[in-house]
Simulated assay, not measured.
Amino acid sequence: MYPGVQFDDKVVWITGASSGIGEALAVRMSARGSVLVLSARNESELQRVATLCREAGASDVLVLPLDVSKHATMEPAAQQVLAQFGKIDLLINNAGVSQRSFCVDTDFDVYRQMMDINVLGQIALTQAVLPAMIARGEGHIAVTASVAGKVGAPMRTGYCAAKHAVMGFFDALRTEVAADGLQVTTITPGFIQTNVSKNALSGDGSATGTTDEDIAGGMSVDDCADVIIAGFESGEPEIAVGTGPEMALLPLKRENPVAAFQALEQMAAQLRQAT
């Protein structure tokens, strides 16, 4: 366990802040007096969220449009934040994109996008902020991974590969920076009511444009953010969040992996019949 996070006057940088979990976290941290840096590709949506943050009590808000797939832009972005606020207390790597296609039907470029956005983008931004955190001897880095970072789910081979990589990277990073006074938190949501499936890539790289029944029936994004905030405040290094049957896969994979594999194979068979 870590010391609990106190958000008052902390500089919190959230990627993927234009909707969903990122937006909900930004508003809640604003109510706790944080300084917010909001990043995503859609500047107009970021401005909308910035207004909500100011209304909620944020002491300051910087809208910083960012495409995490453009890795070379991470360092200049970090320097801009440091120039304006002098520090970054908490970076939440929340940007990402999912997938909905069987491997045999998936263009290789979709796999490349899964890695560029979900893995390399998070690593590039993390590397950009690490030196300043290490120099201060304090700082906190978090990443929104997924239950798909712990188990392999059908129609998400690229997404699962990326989220497994994210979990491995940040778990390893945690070991390296602990002696520097830094903390690392991994967040593993299950089905949350966001646009994740609507924006997910199909086999040809186009967005599906549809919302999965599991996502539609999942935990509300506000409840999700509340669980994550509580996890930060209580010092949890890994925060599992969700209420659906998918959350049972986490202990099942540890305790009885064969049963977990069989359950997911049945899910794949059902999906094949439905497509």
Rank of each mutant, 00 (worst) to 15 (best):
M1H: 13
Y2E: 08
G4I: 09
V5W: 10
Q6D: 13
F7S: 10
K10P: 00
V11T: 06
I14G: 03
T15E: 01
S18C: 03
G20N: 06
G20C: 05
G22F: 00
A26I: 08
M29R: 07
M29G: 02
S30H: 07
A31W: 05
A31Q: 12
R32V: 04
S34E: 02
S34T: 03
V37T: 01
V37A: 03
L38F: 02
S39C: 11
R41C: 07
E43H: 04
Q47R: 15
R48W: 02
L52S: 10
C53I: 06
R54M: 09
R54P: 00
R54Q: 13
A56F: 05
G57K: 07
G57P: 03
A58E: 09
V68T: 10
M74T: 10
E75P: 04
E75M: 09
A77E: 06
A78V: 05
Q79M: 10
Q79K: 14
Q80K: 13
V81A: 00
V81I: 09
V81C: 00
K87T: 12
I88P: 00
N94G: 01
Q99I: 06
F102Q: 10
T106E: 08
T106Y: 07
D107M: 13
F108P: 00
D109P: 00
D109H: 14
D109F: 11
Y111I: 09
M114T: 04
M115F: 12
N118Y: 06
N118D: 13
V119F: 15
Q122W: 05
A124I: 03
A128T: 04
A128W: 00
V129K: 03
L130P: 08
L130T: 04
L130E: 05
R136Q: 14
G137H: 07
G139P: 05
I141K: 08
T144L: 11
A148D: 13
A148C: 14
G149Y: 01
G149E: 01
G152I: 06
G152Q: 06
A153Q: 12
G158L: 03
C160H: 01
A162F: 01
H164P: 08
F169C: 07
D171E: 15
E176S: 07
A178T: 11
A178L: 11
A178Y: 09
A178C: 02
D180W: 03
V184F: 05
T185H: 03
T185R: 04
T186W: 01
I187V: 09
T188L: 11
P189F: 00
F191D: 06
Q193S: 02
N195A: 11
N199S: 11
N199Q: 13
N199R: 15
A200E: 02
G205R: 04
S206W: 04
T210F: 11
E213T: 15
E213W: 12
D214K: 15
A216E: 11
G217T: 10
V221N: 01
A230R: 12
G231I: 08
S234T: 15
E236M: 13
E236N: 12
P237L: 07
P237H: 10
I239D: 01
A240D: 15
P245L: 08
E246T: 12
E246W: 04
M247C: 06
L250R: 10
R254I: 09
E255L: 14
N256Q: 13
A260L: 07
A260E: 11
F261G: 04
Q262E: 14
Q262D: 15
Q270Y: 09
Q273K: 15
A274R: 15
T275Y: 15
T275H: 14
